[in-house]
């Protein structure tokens, strides 16, 4: 652990930028797979922030949460991709605009 480390603010800033980029992807992209990948990007951004803070406060909990987020992400990807496959089967499209049955 070096004393000439990068300030935690920079990590958090980077993570914030990555996060908002992911969010923009989620909102703006219509390809379901890309939306999904954007979600992954957001998760990673959050992970980065967590890791940075974990180092700042020398706490193992941050690492643990990152670990759990990764696990949950894996589970989410499994189910999400299964959903996409199923939607594609029925709709022959992965444009999420075609899926709006749940309107009020």
């Amino acid at each position: 652990m070096g004393s000439s480390e990068v300030a935690v603010e920079l990590y958090v800033l980077l993570s914030a930028v990555l996060f908002i980029m992911g969010a923009m992807g989620v909102v703006l992209r219509r390809n379901a797979i890309l939306v999904f990948m954007s979600v992954e990007l957001m998760l990673n951004a959050a992970n980065l922030a967590l890791a940075a803070f974990a180092r700042q406060w020398a706490s193992g909990s941050g690492h643990l949460v990152v670990f759990f987020v990764m696990t949950v992400a894996a589970a989410e990807v499994a189910v999400g991709l299964a959903l996409i496959v199923t939607i594609f089967r029925t709709k022959k499209s992965i444009d999420i605009d075609t899926v709006h049955m749940f309107k009020g």
């Binding site: 989620v26 909102v27 703006l28 899926v99 749940f102 309107k103 009020g104």
Partner: peptide
């Protein structure tokens, strides 16, 4: 009126969540 918010489009939902 309110039910119109429920468009069924993912974009709108994610947008509101955000």
């Amino acid at each position: 009126r309110l039910r119109r918010i429920q468009t069924g489009y993912v974009h709108i939902y994610t947008m509101s969540v955000l």
